[in-house]
């Protein structure tokens, strides 16, 4: 499977740079923390942490490829996980036998997918049919989805999942965490979708010049609609992992993810103006952030120090990109 590594080798300059920086971060952490960072235990724990953000960032990338943005992703994730939680707490009879629980879990997954796609459909409708600028449309729906979640829960956390459910967020298959497996599957699917299908190429074309896409007979409205629906679907899945991993669903869970996913997408080389970006960049960027974040935790930095470093990291990468692009120009 060609993930675009070839492009990196060929000189997709900014991604190559990011890979290099990620590697440096990794080596730095290994050097600073030989006993704790470079351990199986740490890698296992990291592999459970970054997939949520990774999945949301893939969804963000999808919107950014077409020149849009999706601020409502976390709102969708939380709404999906809360509705799923309600199924367990309010509908599923307690003490259900194992088989019934599994059916309910399948139902909850289906519900999350459905909720995610419906929310994405509304975004897509506003953006592609009513021509609302994406940042405004999703700013509004972000308020709406989060608002509905608050109304449903009165702001409190919903807890009480069946033990089986936690497999999605905490289980392992052949030594690999389920969230990681889900992320890798989605990443692969994305790579294929973006590089190898008509739909994927249409996304790039729309992001590059929406008017020309229209005049070329590309069904711009439909493509946008589907892309926001896929984004919503991904957010729904991320919501499942989040609620399963933390064993709770809350209206304001992970609100910082929205900015982080923009950060990951931009770090990963997705142009905010649309038309360019690789799925593989998302993986590298999210790994870079995870290395930084885990390393700092082990160095006893507070969470806040991480936030500080992330901001600085983003700016530093952008500045480095600026200088390399300038050099390439001359």
């Amino acid at each position: 499977m060609n993930f675009g590594f070839g492009k990196i080798a060929k000189g997709e300059g900014n991604i190559r740079q990011l890979s290099f920086i990620t590697l440096c971060t990794f080596i730095l952490m290994c050097w600073l923390l030989p006993d704790t960072f470079l351990t199986v235990r740490n890698f296992r724990s990291m592999s459970f942490q970054f997939p949520e953000l990774g999945i949301l960032s893939l969804a963000m990338m999808l919107a950014m490829l077409t020149g849009g943005i999706d601020l409502s992703l976390v709102g969708i994730a939380n709404l999906a996980s809360i509705l799923g939680a309600f199924v367990f707490v309010k509908i599923m009879p307690p003490d259900s036998p194992e088989g019934v629980v599994l059916v309910y879990i399948a139902g909850v997954v289906a519900l999350a997918v459905f909720v995610g796609m419906s929310c994405g459909l509304l975004n897509g409708f506003l953006i592609s049919r009513l021509n609302v600028p994406p940042i405004l449309a999703t700013l509004g729906t972000m308020q709406l989805y989060t608002g509905i979640a608050i109304v449903l829960t009165k702001g409190a956390a919903v807890i009480g999942f069946p033990a089986r459910y936690s497999v999605i967020g905490n289980g392992s298959v052949a030594g690999f965490g389920v969230p990681l497996i889900i992320f890798i599957l989605l990443l692969t699917a994305f790579t294929v979708l973006l590089r190898k299908t008509n739909f994927g190429i249409n996304l790039y074309l729309i992001g590059s010049n929406a008017k020309a896409a229209l005049f070329s007979g590309i069904k711009v409205g439909k493509v946008l609609m589907i892309s926001y629906m896929i984004g919503g679907l991904m957010a729904g899945l991320a919501g499942l992992i989040m609620s399963s991993r933390t064993n709770g669903a809350k209206a304001d869970y992970g609100t910082s993810y929205i900015l982080q996913s923009i950060l990951v997408a931009v770090l990963g080389g997705v142009k905010p103006t649309g038309g360019s970006g690789y799925a593989i960049g998302i993986l590298i960027a999210v790994l870079a952030l995870q290395f930084l974040s885990s390393g700092f935790s082990m160095l006893r930095f507070s969470n806040f120090a991480k936030e500080f470093v992330w901001g600085v990291f983003l700016l530093a990468i952008m500045i480095v990109n600026y200088f390399t692009n300038e050099r390439n120009k001359s």
């Binding site: 900015l259 950060l263 806040f304 120090a305 991480k306 936030e307 500080f308 470093v309 992330w310 901001g311 600085v312 983003l314 700016l315 952008m318």
Partner: peptide, 8 residues
């Protein structure tokens, strides 16, 4: 970036 850095 600056918002995140300053808050952090």
């Amino acid at each position: 970036g600056t918002g995140s850095a300053v808050t952090g």
